[in-house]
Design a protein around this nucleic acid. Structure first.
Lengths: 196, 196
DNA sequence: TTTATATGGTTCCATATAGAACGAATATCG
DNA sequence: CGATATTCGTTCTATATGGAACCATATAAA
């Protein structure tokens, strides 16, 4: 299994700023007033008029940066490239543009990623029978091997992230996030195109 | 108030892939089975072994992309640049490296952003008295005007995001997020440097 | 059929990005 | 005090990024 891949540029991005109006009673750091988390980060998270967004961004950041950094080092794959593999592992036979529209990567970036993965032998591609514009992508064993190795790490990080929550709280959180996510579809899908 | 700023490159990034192991009972789309949200996005969110992370990323994405797109169009400011302004509005007198370490933008990127904002007259900078390496940044009226105009939009987006939740649910969510965020500090701060 | 429009994917190219090396101001320790 | 190691910020430079133009296929209208 060719887990090599020439080590390349590390592309961390994201950032965890901003947030939005709080109708909500801020439960200030309260008890866990924190060791000595720098005063500015503290402000960004707790004195931010957009507190929810700030926390979402913050969590997404803390989760993504180390993981994709590791992916880059371990497999020599950029974030987009790994996303393609991960996407196919979750739902094989999808097309590049579907991944693009679902993940907000521009399609040319996806195109490059796909081509590199093809060259590396991690995925395969064949034109769709009906619509020959569409390129059906499938995960090859080598690609799956990468996913198989990476998944535990991603899962582990999520566990770490959820560690402070009880099982009930996790279910609660899962439910609340689901509500938000599902609602997003109804609106955005129509009024303002998804992204890309 | 110079809200001009030459329109420049739009830099959306982020992406909303991945997720992590679910000890949690997935409350499948259930009732809200959704209009016709594309099958792949559906898989990414519900059939993903890293469901939490996937949702976090998804939400962060849906929130950030349109907002920063607007910021770019309206003010001609890149994401980092706006982040600097936003940061100072929340906590004036912070230094570039503090913003860097708190938001995961590399410090040279911050450096450029700061210099451009200086040139545009949005912020001011003066060396700290004690440690003359440090550059204290402050928000100028022109910069605050930008913040003042942008905030409602950011706040509005957050409201939209929270729309599907009742007030109780919002408080619940706020609390759960806070728990996760606060816990993150204890560990990461020590074992693995924040970022940057 | 021809013309116009939309969509998947690639290519081109200006530019923003981020690693690395650097300079200046500190801090630490002998 | 002088030497070494840190830290804040900048400059340099290779490269990844993403907007726009493009080609091919497909669909709709005429």
């Amino acid at each position: 299994m060719p887990l090599t891949g020439t080590a390349r540029r590390k592309t961390q991005q994201d950032a965890a700023e901003s947030g939005t109006s709080a109708l909500v009673a801020e439960s200030e750091p309260a008890r866990l007033d924190r060791k000595r988390l720098d005063v500015f980060t503290h402000a960004r998270l707790w004195k931010n008029p957009c507190g929810f967004a700030a926390r979402f961004n913050y969590i997404a950041l803390r989760y993504n940066v180390p993981l994709y950094g590791w992916v880059e080092e371990r497999f020599g794959l950029s974030r987009v490239e790994f996303v393609v593999i991960y996407s196919l592992a979750i739902h094989d036979g999808v097309t590049a543009s579907e991944i693009a529209s679902s993940t907000a990567f521009p399609k040319n970036t996806l195109s490059r990623a796909v081509n590199r993965l093809l060259k590396l032998g991690y995925i395969a591609r064949k034109a769709d029978g009906d619509d020959r514009r569409m390129q059906i992508l499938t995960l090859l064993p080598a690609g799956r091997a990468i996913y198989d190795e990476a998944l535990p790490r991603f899962a582990g990080m999520e566990q770490e992230m959820l560690a402070p929550l009880s099982l009930v709280e996790r279910e609660m959180l899962s439910m609340l996030l689901a509500k938000v996510v599902l609602a997003t579809f109804g609106t955005d899908q129509a009024e303002q195109e998804p992204q890309e």
